[in-house]
Simulated assay, not measured.
Amino acid sequence: MSHSLDVDGLLSDASVRIVVCCGSGGVGKTTTAAALALRAAERHGRHVVVLTIDPARRLAQSLGLTELDNTPRAVTGMDESAGGELSAMMLDMKRTFDEVVAAHTEPARAKEIFANPFYQAMSSTFSGTQEYMAMEKLAQLRASKDWDLIVVDTPPSRSALDFLDAPARLGRFLDGKMLRLLIAPAKAGGRSVFNLVTASFGLFSKAVQKILGAQLLTDLSGFVAALDSMFGGFRERSEQTYRVLQDPQTAFLVVAAPEPDAVREAAFFAGRLGEERMPLAGLVLNRVHQTGAAEISAAEALAAADSIAAEFPVAADALRIHAAVAEQAEREQRVIGRFTGEFPQVPVLAIAAQATDVHDLDGLRAILA
């Protein structure tokens, strides 16, 4: 039997420095992350920064900010009586990639990388770049002394597992043997790498050019040659951040809605976190429907409505509304039971469905009230 998640106990624990909200798209991760960050600052005096990777502007709006960018912005209008502070930011993956390049290469080499067409495309649209740069930014924030709690809203992905997989994939790509091979022309005084190896590899090179195109291969080779000084760093930082995610200072919260697909995805993610030995703190269920009179079942409400409909039509309508909500709540509990049955040790926090969308700090406070 799953037990209730003590969210205040989690947020007040000074040993917890990172809270990662993850789950499939459309389940309320962004709002949940903002609500948790606000509560940690207002109630528990934490110095919090919330990092969102969601391209939508909902987080900025709910925190009373006109916009968010790659630099943390202080949130105003919050209750500071507990001594807490809250800042918010939205990941700019290209700017973060630029920062990484600038920090780990000489200025002239960085300028060469920035001008390379392959880098320009990769830093903006390459698969896995967003998730990898989220990990890079997390490492930067963790190294800063400005915050004692970082709340991460993971990228909206087709699969929630992408947040764990993509950084490693990109790190392997940037540090891979094929890219190292492409560096060879620059190291060989401009001679083609294909003149330095066997004729059979020359046939392979023609196949590669046919698939990628000669210009793309040229851009890629130039990009890798310019990036040579950074090889090893991508993988090393990715592995270091991965180890941080396995540490008790990190708490993962799987966010879901009481819908079959979302709960199924949450179960996959919970299983994966267990396999990777990452600390799963609990399941947050958003938009859970509840009735004000749980002791009256849907069937009882409908029967009562039918018996009084002629004499008390308004009361009968109210009973039918209660029955509809009760039926939905029962369906949701059956769906939730699939997760709790598989992971009975995982604490659960159920958040009631809100009457309106969240647009301000009061709305965020109401979520965890």
Results as ranks from 00 to 15, higher is better:
R43A: 11
S124G: 03
I53F: 00
H44S: 10
N116H: 05
G23N: 05
D92P: 15
S124T: 15
S24F: 04
I113D: 02
A121K: 11
G64F: 10
E99A: 14
S87I: 06
K94G: 00
C21Q: 05
E80Y: 02
A40W: 02
L91A: 10
A14I: 15
M89I: 00
D8S: 14
D8Y: 01
V7I: 15
P72A: 11
F114H: 11
S124D: 09
S123I: 01
T105G: 08
V27F: 14
V50I: 08
A110L: 04
F97K: 03
A34Q: 02
G26D: 12
R73H: 15
L38S: 06
E106Q: 15
G64P: 05
V20D: 08
R95N: 00
A40Q: 07
P72W: 01
L68S: 07
Q61W: 06
G28P: 07
M78T: 05
P117F: 01
P107F: 11
S15Y: 09
L65M: 09
I113P: 00
E112P: 01
D6N: 15
R109Y: 02
R17N: 12
V100M: 08
S12R: 15
S62P: 03
R109P: 03
S124W: 00
L65R: 09
D54I: 10
D79V: 07
A33G: 13
G25P: 10
R39W: 03
K111C: 06
R43E: 08
V48T: 09
S81Y: 06
G84P: 03
V75P: 04
H104I: 01
E106R: 15
H104R: 13
N70P: 11
T71M: 03
M93C: 04
K94L: 03
L86S: 00
K94W: 03
L36D: 02
A60D: 05
L36I: 11
E85L: 06
G83P: 04
A40I: 13
V20T: 14
S12W: 00
G28S: 12
T71K: 05
M89Y: 02
R17P: 11
N116Y: 05
G83A: 14
R73Y: 09
A56S: 13
S123F: 02
E85N: 06
G77I: 06
V20L: 13
Q120M: 11
L10K: 04
A121C: 10
V49F: 01
G77H: 13
R109W: 01
D69R: 13
E99M: 06
T96F: 01
R73I: 13
K111V: 08
D54C: 10
Q61C: 12
G26R: 14
V20I: 15
S123T: 03
L11N: 10
V48L: 06
E112M: 08
A88D: 05
V49Q: 02
M78L: 14
T125Q: 15
Q120H: 02
V101L: 14
E106V: 07
L36S: 03
S87G: 04
V19P: 01
V48P: 00
Y119M: 07
L59D: 05
V20S: 04
F118V: 00
I53S: 13
T96V: 07
L36V: 06
G23K: 05
P55L: 09
A121F: 07
